[in-house]
Computed example of a mutant assay.
Amino acid sequence: MNPSSGGWINKHFTHLQQHVLDQHFTEEHFYLQLQQTGFIYAHSTKTLSYSHPLKFKWTLEEKTKINLFDALAYVYFSTFPKATKIDFIEETVKFYELLEKESIWKIKFSFFKSKPEETLEKILQHRIQINESYIQKNFSHLITNALLFIDVLAFREYLTHKKHPKTYLTELESLITNVVILAFQKKTIKDNYENLVIKLLESSLRYHKIQPQPKSFDELNFEGFSVHFEKKYILDLASITIYSDEEIEKKEYAFIEKLGNELGFSTDEVDENIAQMLQFLKEHKSEISYFNYSNSIQHFYKNTNRMVKVLIMRNKNRLLKEILESKELVVLLSKSTHKDLSEEEKHKVKEQLLDICKTIPSLAIFILPGGSVLLPILIKFIPQLLPSSFNENRIEKP
């Protein structure tokens, strides 16, 4: 079975039926099994329905796609045990069509008159790749790919209450965002790149945008999320966020314990959950991209610096020509070499540079969702392109 070729759903379904659906897992056991694949931790090292993953040379994306499909199927057939495969596929397609209408990042699907299973295959492919960009490929999938499980939770809500899941999705994403930000704030050593993490989180959200000021823990409302799936998922996201620097301090553990207790878990259950996460990371840490570097955020920043510099140097003549044609932008950039710009001036520089990037295809990355993360790096390099007369303090290298 090749998850990247058409027809994989029909070929896979019999295996799914035998190894997952016919097992009649409880929700707790199913979530534990899915957790152990790595899907919840944003890195599927194996799949739920194939017990011997080494036989299949599947990519991370392919394993993630299979796990997403299996989780959606488990939720559907747990709700409608006598339904057919085609019932499930058609209902899942309807669900994703509803989600697409509400997404803040519109991806238009054009599937013409495809068969339902072909349509779902294409939707799942888009769903896995929807937030893929240079940014995510050079940073951990700590947050972006982990949010795929929101699809499963929203599908369950949709099937259970027979209503549009927009409100549910917005509230869940908002709560998760808040919890992740609060988890980062518990770190003793504050990272200079924390704002990049928040920007990356923002670019991965589909149904709401991050609020300027997150709520305090006491202001968060967990009452609307009482299902085991939901509570465990929120706890797991917070745990993996705190562990991102490869250790859990007392202050961080206290936050996880408080969160777990608020969600209805005992301290022993919180400890067991952390132990499960640590065991998974111990076994698979070397395979997971965001643990391959001592500071994955700093690695992202350095990698991006190099990438942006290459882009600028390759397009410097055209970029400089466009900049020099904008008198106001030249004045502001020149001023920035010896004096801090006001917030209004910084905004003008940002807007005008974005307009220039729109005219240069190679710089289109800066206008994509999440591309604003790169703008400060672009702005840092721009003054070096200006003639020395614009920067009196610049010392030319021999």
Rank of each mutant, 00 (worst) to 15 (best):
Y301Q: 03
Q213V: 07
Y74A: 00
K186R: 14
N221I: 05
W8K: 02
S204P: 03
F149Q: 12
K101Q: 06
T170V: 12
I104A: 00
S296G: 03
I242K: 10
K397D: 02
Y253G: 01
A73Q: 03
T337P: 00
H52C: 02
E328T: 13
I135F: 06
L147M: 04
N393W: 15
F390T: 09
G260V: 12
G370N: 13
I382A: 00
A73W: 12
M1K: 11
F229T: 11
F95E: 04
S388E: 09
I274A: 00
I365R: 01
L72P: 06
S5F: 10
E91T: 08
K65T: 08
N315I: 03
L363H: 15
K215Y: 14
L148N: 14
Q23C: 04
S334W: 15
F222R: 02
P3H: 10
S389L: 10
I189D: 10
I379E: 09
L172K: 11
L34A: 05
K163L: 05
T144I: 05
N67H: 07
E223P: 03
S216V: 11
I130S: 02
S216G: 09
K350S: 12
K106D: 05
G224E: 14
D271E: 06
K94V: 09
G6K: 15
S133C: 01
D22S: 04
H24M: 02
K358Q: 12
T64W: 07
T79Q: 13
I274N: 04
V310Q: 12
H19Y: 14
I240T: 13
P361K: 14
A83N: 13
L324H: 15
F25M: 03
K190L: 01
L205W: 10
I176C: 03
E392W: 15
E62I: 11
K55R: 12
A238P: 11
